[in-house]
Design a protein around this nucleic acid. Structure first.
Lengths: 362, 362
DNA sequence: CTGTTAGCGCATTCAT
DNA sequence: ATGAATGCGCTAACAG
């Protein structure tokens, strides 16, 4: 079999306990013996047995990062940032301290989310970071809340990143919540469009049962309402957070409501699909149709025209989530909730409404 | 503390051993007792202790997927596909069998790659999938080969996806290798450009020490050589696989070699940067400058003009890697190497060389 | 500062 | 088909 702690102890002529102590570094050991042990470790090429260690210590060094879609840079950026912070966390020279940050792809499936949570629980994970919008089905929410409570009870730190805080009643076993201002960002974006004279604005939303979807849509409607524009339900279409949704929704929208002068998409990926559909229809962006997205993904810059969108500091948020998950840094806000601001990025895909600047729907 | 196997045993009025057997399903148990145990498990909301189980069984259900950059869809797509296959692998109804597929982001750092491999080794991972190009530093390669040997010895299955096969001498502890035809794809692409009359072709390559970088560049040069064109070293620039590299490299290229009629980028992301730089310089794509990428990422479709590129079946390859990592499906090719074809995708970003069709550098 | 002694929770022989 | 006993490799009190 492989090399064990005792093997190292024998070679270093000390007791197993001593080896354990120098490896974990959390106990005073004479410099001479420490050196001897370290040399034995190197010579034997010893690697700690994680499961055994986790069993004895009742905790592991696993940190799980749950994402809805790993192929979507929105999640990739957050996950990468978090992982970088977690791995780099403890600057311990040689041994322990290292956390294993791993990302788990739920694919947006509630069942998979629960499965991963259970798997992480079974591994006695040190921390779990849940990223992105939550599913709003009451039953599923309750199940997740229950799981999180179990995890927290077992000593796992829970961090929410880009997901609204859990309701008070849920017992709030959450260490920290980075709450994206999706609603505010969406409001800003639609206000921008309104200021350009648009009044007939289509909206391509994400999946119905997601918090992110709902908040962005609500922000949009708030802006409309504040401007005294009645919300036309026919102008809002739901789909997935992908390009295909953007294409088909835009086609439908453009066919049924030719008087549309702008379309807001729930994220950049959808927006790209909307642009493609518009082009296919012979419409120029933004002269004939203004299009806006959300997230400010890297590729939003490279479209022609460059996409007007709402920037979310994904990298920074992910990094902070990583910090909160590992270190004992206590979160700032009340209830452990830290708001994350959204910033409007006006670029070239939005322009004045055709047929006047603020003339209304004439 | 939390619920243990014995707690379940007591409640179900059986021995711990029996509970273990029904949970693992790999042993005959009377239907009546099985039901009783299952009910106790449900009532107590019991979750297996992973570390304890791994310690006793000397294996875990962890599968690690190593990626160079999780924020890059190139890796996200492969990782997501692999993860989906691994999680869905065993259709076992309730209990065990479930594998925990996790992705580890090395960020392209050799040290992090080794660290993750060690961490995975310490967790006694069931399998490890290494995706994307390998770093070519001899010292690092040797270290990785050594680690992989250790892992394989401990029973971990190793799968390479998008990375060239390990040299024979390394002992080949690799279960399977999905080898992308980067060289062939690059050759196809440059041949396409040559057929359009381009002879002065710039090349924006990735990081020097990566296999992917080298193979794509070699394919490009092969095509050039086959066409009797001498390779001008000044036309090849190295950088990272990101947009910024594309921008700066294109600026330099365009400034120093104004007679360039085409630029090939080592991947789509770089190509997008090249397009942006060309536009900034007032050049039309493809009329004034043809631009091509590699990978066929989703966003390559949404640029204007749509990017000519080389398609790699990322999703399919990732899925196959997941299968090979979990099931005992033996790989097809000799030495466990399965070639993965690259396919030329001609779109709108490439066109005839300005100033004639094949007139040469006049 | 270091050695000794017990388990951590589970999978597995063996018996029965 | 089930129960009893043993040990996986390590950490954590205790001594000393």
């Amino acid at each position: 079999m492989s090399v064990t702690l005792s093997d190292v102890a024998v070679r270093a002529q000390v007791s197993p306990a001593t080896v354990s102590r120098v490896l974990n570094g959390n106990y005073p050991v004479a410099e001479a013996t420490r050196a001897r042990v370290l040399r034995a470790v190197a010579e034997l090429d010893y690697v700690v047995n994680g499961p055994a260690s986790a069993l004895a210590a009742a905790t592991s060094d696993l940190v799980g990062i749950l994402v809805n879609d790993i192929a979507d840079p929105f999640f990739g950026i957050m996950a990468g940032a978090a992982q970088a912070r977690i791995s780099a966390a403890e600057g311990v020279a040689r041994a322990g301290g290292e956390k294993l940050a791993v990302v788990c792809n739920t694919g947006g499936s509630p069942a998979r989310e629960l499965t991963y949570l259970t798997l992480l629980q079974r591994q006695r994970a040190a921390a779990v970071i849940l990223t992105g919008g939550a599913i709003e089905d009451p039953e599923h929410s309750a199940a997740v809340a229950a799981k999180l409570t179990k995890l927290a009870d077992a000593g796992t730190r829970i961090v929410l990143c880009g997901r609204p805080p859990l309701p008070e009643g849920a017992g709030a076993p959450v260490a920290a919540t980075l709450s994206f201002d999706n609603r505010g960002g969406a409001r800003l974006l639609t206000e921008h469009l309104l200021s350009l004279g648009h009044t007939r604005i289509g909206y391509v939303a994400g999946p119905m049962e997601r918090t992110t979807t709902r908040h962005r849509l609500e922000g949009h409607r708030e802006a409309l309402r504040a401007a005294g524009i009645d919300d036309d339900p026919a102008l809002t279409l739901h789909g997935s957070y992908d390009r295909a949704t953007g294409v088909s929704a835009a086609e439908r929208l453009l066919a049924t409501a030719p008087d549309l002068t702008a379309v807001v998409a729930a994220n950049d990926t959808i927006a790209l699909g909307v642009c493609a559909a518009a082009r296919a229809r012979g419409l120029r962006v933004p002269e004939d149709l203004s299009v806006a997205g959300f997230d400010d993904l890297p590729c939003a810059t490279d479209t022609v025209p460059a996409l007007t969108t709402v920037r979310l500091p994904l990298y920074e948020a992910g990094a902070r989530a990583g910090l909160l998950a590992t270190a004992r840094e206590t979160p700032a806000g009340p209830g452990g909730v830290e708001p994350v601001e959204a910033e409007l990025k006006v670029r070239d895909s939005t322009g004045p409404a055709r047929g006047g600047t603020g003339a209304g729907r004439g």
